[in-house]
């Protein structure tokens, strides 16, 4: 009967249609990542570094010090009477207090990085005013090149996070929804092959993955000038591998959950560590060395590393092969385990 498509195609097409008719899903897949990119992009946009507020304890020499310290581009000095100065330092409204006549006294909390910076800047300004000359000539070169800004780091991470989120939600939510509505039970009462149903979840996922990635990349290209330095084809392959990993995980997570609440909880348990550890918003290099091999084995870390490698560094396929392998392994293993333990009723 050639007028009917094979079941896996029909299942995929109907799943895509269902998805596209779901207004909320469209927002979470397409709208939300754009809003997130926009918000974070503006929050971390290029601008002069914030000046650090510091306090000068009121004394006869305070006005003069205010003038000297105001010349530093890194400091925002203000004069406080002694009692108020105590208060603003303790509550963190200023990072440093400058006081004393003759000997300059810096009061600050040495565990706060901004306090240490303020101490150095303030000292520099006061020493220079007092006549210090630097024996070693230096020149600052500020980094604003494309590819090395925070937004260039952030966008591949957001893309990875979005591929994870929508992949797991679209599969997990849909499967559990079909289970609670007894649609799964109805489907297995037909000759439909169970693997066709689950494969269709993944194939449909690929359909809107394409739209989702293109939307975010085009948007950030025009709004923030984020470019793809490597191969687009390779980028596509990485996204497909990522989708495979997270569709598989989605199926595994949804394989036995009976309610939407249960699957939501499981999703969060699985995704939360990856949001934090996999280098979405900040590099996982900050974690202890002992933890890094485990972090690198997470599918989102592999996806983010591969996306960053291709987008910012323009790495070749051979260089991201380990990450592709990690993602495919996650996808295949979790799909097979999910299929094995799947609860159809």
């Amino acid at each position: 009967m050639s007028e009917y498509n094979p079941p896996v195609i029909e299942l995929t097409v109907t799943r895509l249609k269902e998805f596209l008719r779901e207004t909320e899903a469209i927002f979470w897949v397409f709208g939300f990542p754009l809003l997130l990119a926009l918000a974070l992009g503006f929050a971390f946009r290029e601008k002069a570094p914030d000046r650090i507020p510091i306090g000068i304890v009121d004394a006869p020499n305070a006005k003069q010090r205010l003038a000297l310290l105001s010349r530093s581009p890194a400091l925002l000095p203000r004069i406080y009477d002694p009692a108020a100065a105590e208060q603003v330092l303790r509550t963190g409204k200023v990072s440093l207090l400058v006081e004393g006549t003759g000997v300059v006294i810096y009061r600050f909390d040495a565990t706060r990085p901004d306090s240490r910076v303020a101490r150095l800047e303030a000292d520099d300004a006061l020493q220079a005013a007092a006549g210090r000359r630097n024996p070693q000539p230096v020149r600052d070169q500020l980094v604003t090149e494309r590819g090395s800004r925070y937004i260039d780091f952030l966008i591949p991470g957001l893309l990875g996070m979005n591929i994870m989120g929508t992949g797991m939600w679209s599969v997990g939510f849909n499967v559990v929804n079909a289970r609670t509505r007894k649609l799964l039970k109805r489907l297995i009462a037909t000759p439909m092959r169970k693997s066709d149903y689950l494969a269709a979840q993944f194939l449909a996922r690929l359909g809107f993955l394409f739209l989702e990635v293109i939307t975010l990349l085009v948007f950030t290209r025009f709004v923030f000038g984020v470019r793809v330095n490597g191969s687009w084809l390779l980028l596509g392959a990485i996204c497909v591998a990522g989708a495979a990993a997270f569709s598989g995980l989605g199926i595994l997570i949804a394989s036995r959950a009976k309610t939407i609440e249960a699957v939501s909880g499981l999703m969060n348990v699985v995704m939360m560590p990856m949001w934090l550890c996999s280098g979405v918003f900040f590099s996982y290099e900050r974690f202890p060395d002992a933890a890094k091999p485990y972090i690198r084995a997470l599918p989102l870390t592999a996806l983010n590393d591969a996306l960053r490698g291709v987008m910012t560094e323009g790495l070749s396929a051979a260089r991201v092969a380990p990450q592709l392998g990690i993602m495919l392994a996650w996808g295949v293993v979790s799909f097979l385990v999910g299929l094995k333990i799947f609860r159809w009723q």
């Binding site: 498509n5 029909e10 299942l11 109907t14 269902e18 007894k182 649609l183 039970k185």
Partner: peptide
Amino acid sequence: TQLNEKLTVLEVLRLFRSF
């Protein structure tokens, strides 16, 4: 059974027919 609410009658029947 709550069939796929977002699909049309024809789409549901085509899907089941394909099995």
